[in-house]
């Protein structure tokens, strides 16, 4: 494999794919987080009766929904780490190996 200069790497298809994938996944996950949190706030603002409705006993729908926002946020960070550890790091290694002096 021929080594490439830093400048050539930037024009390189592999680097472009890496940057594109990273941007895409960051964007999707950020939007998801925004939707989850502001969706929750909107529910509180516009549909209190839904959150106040009973699930079982005294437990309201709002409790699992609120806790769910916390857990989902954490899961999203987990999805990102999992993707980055498995895919992104490998692509980064490939590119690093191909960069010559």
């Amino acid at each position: 494999m021929t080594k490439k200069s830093a400048h050539e790497i930037l024009e390189d298809e592999e680097f472009r794919t890496l940057a594109r994938q990273k941007n895409l996944i960051s964007l999707i996950l950020t939007i998801l987080e925004l939707v989850i949190y502001f969706g929750f706030i909107s529910l509180i603002a516009f549909n209190k009766p839904f959150l106040a409705s009973k699930l079982s006993g005294s437990m309201t729908v709002g409790i699992p929904v609120g806790i769910g926002v916390i857990i989902l946020s954490w899961i999203l960070t987990g999805i990102y780490v999992n993707w980055a550890n498995k895919k992104y790091d490998r692509m980064v290694e490939n590119i690093k190996n191909r960069i010559g002096g």
Partner: peptide, 17 residues
């Protein structure tokens, strides 16, 4: 609970961006 949720949701943003 509503209040505490707001303090967590910045962390994924730190991660992704």
């Amino acid at each position: 609970l509503i209040y505490s949720v707001g303090w967590l949701v910045g962390w994924p943003i730190i991660m992704f961006l």
